[in-house]
Write a protein that binds this DNA or RNA. Structure first.
Lengths: 227, 227
DNA sequence: CGGGTTCTTGACTATCTTCAACGAAAGTGG
DNA sequence: CCACTTTCGTTGAAGATAGTCAAGAACCCG
């Protein structure tokens, strides 16, 4: 969940609506992405790499037979759109309205006259690799309850907000996005959340807002040290 | 399975045997790694990044409670040891005797006077990201049989050898390595291999050598288009 | 050849998925 | 603005898949 999350990047050739994208110039060109709109698609040529400034985006990959895997959620600070052979290898869609700063692909690949930006983008790629390794542990070696607890933990550490004595975290993604991220079904995600609620580890304020009642309990459950 | 697989790199500070490492100089310093010996550990400071020249290495990550995830197998051409914050984030061990060419960490991070090498290492990092995304699909959205079939398919495409009319692939790793790579148990890996054998998709010559009898069947099974 | 490890197979169990129903929320059109 | 429709989330019951435990076979090593 930490660091960069995506994979590849470019949008001008996308076969779906890109109307939501328009560069609002500050220092660097900024892109506005509306909720539900695609920034780029698997297979698009990569012209830009993006850093999420506000909002949340979702990176997905489709299997031949329609099964879907959510590769990552991109939160502010994350960089999405790493190319391979000049192509995007995931879809990217806004889960909320989002703004992104864009960088030429060449800024990553040959520096493009800005060594500092070059270094930063490379660091982002390395962070991405490490973050994906964390995700592997989650997908491969955790039970449903542990996965959901881990997911909430990581998200809380990354983007949790303090409200009174508690921390809370907003989940702009649907249950099925979470399921496809964790390798579960929506039903199992729902049941796991219910179980966390029944154990008083969390409270579900509304469907998109979770309050962490017992961070310690949640962390234990996420590690699998539970009864 | 394609591209680079590891994560971080450095070996001189490793708490375990590094005796197997000794620079045999050709153009660039070469490292020899004996079977069963660690090249680096999770948490080690990174001094070098390695490209596998011969042999196979294994990259693993440990969970707090002892559960293990195999992040990748490094075959010739793959680069292992990408750093994050100057540290290795996986263990790396030789599955067979292996030789690796090493590059200064600085060759990745600032070019170190060789722009071409710098570009190559960056490309390797991007390939790594894409390869990990493939791995996600496998971990999250495939059945046991599909995982094992995919594993053999990818390995065959990457390092399979033609023998007569058939291709074969050698598996230098143990069943439990495969299990930890695919998020399964050794028993399930074994049962899946048996099922592939019973369906005449593969033949198991000896435990470490698999002959592909029906690539088409194997591929179908890996995609989940099976009865 | 013998001993230890790894692999395979079987029986049973746990976990997660599937299928189905229901309720809540959100979107649509009058 | 409200009724209608559709989607999304939760819950339950039944079934399937993979895990666990246990035993035997194959392989490796000295």
């Amino acid at each position: 969940m930490r660091g960069v999350y995506v994979t590849n990047s470019n949008e001008f050739t996308t076969p779906t609506p890109v109307a939501a994208i328009c560069g609002a110039t500050r220092n660097l060109p900024e892109t506005r992405l509306k909720q539900g709109v695609n920034l780029f698609h698997q297979g698009d040529r990569v012209h830009w790499i993006y850093q999420v400034k506000t909002g949340v985006v979702r990176l997905t990959r489709l299997l031949e037979n329609g099964r879907r895997q959510v590769i990552a959620f991109g939160y502010p600070g994350d960089i999405v759109g790493f190319p391979l052979d000049g192509q995007h290898h995931t879809d990217c869609e806004g889960l909320s309205n989002a703004t992104l700063q864009r960088y030429r692909r060449s800024a990553l690949e040959d520096g493009d006259g800005d060594p500092q930006m070059h270094r930063d983008l490379l660091q982002a790629a390395l962070r991405e690799i490490s973050a994906m390794q964390d995700h592997f542990m989650m997908l491969g070696r955790k039970s449903a309850l542990e996965k959901v607890a881990s997911f909430i933990c990581v998200l809380t550490d990354r983007v949790g907000q303090s409200v009174g004595n508690y921390k809370q975290v907003s989940l702009p993604m649907s249950r099925s996005d979470i399921a496809d991220f964790l390798g579960l079904t929506t039903e199992t995600v729902s049941r796991s959340l219910t179980q966390l609620r029944k154990r008083k580890a969390i409270a579900i304020d509304n469907i998109y807002t979770i309050v962490i009642l017992r961070p310690d309990v949640l962390r234990e459950l996420s590690l699998g040290d539970h009864d």
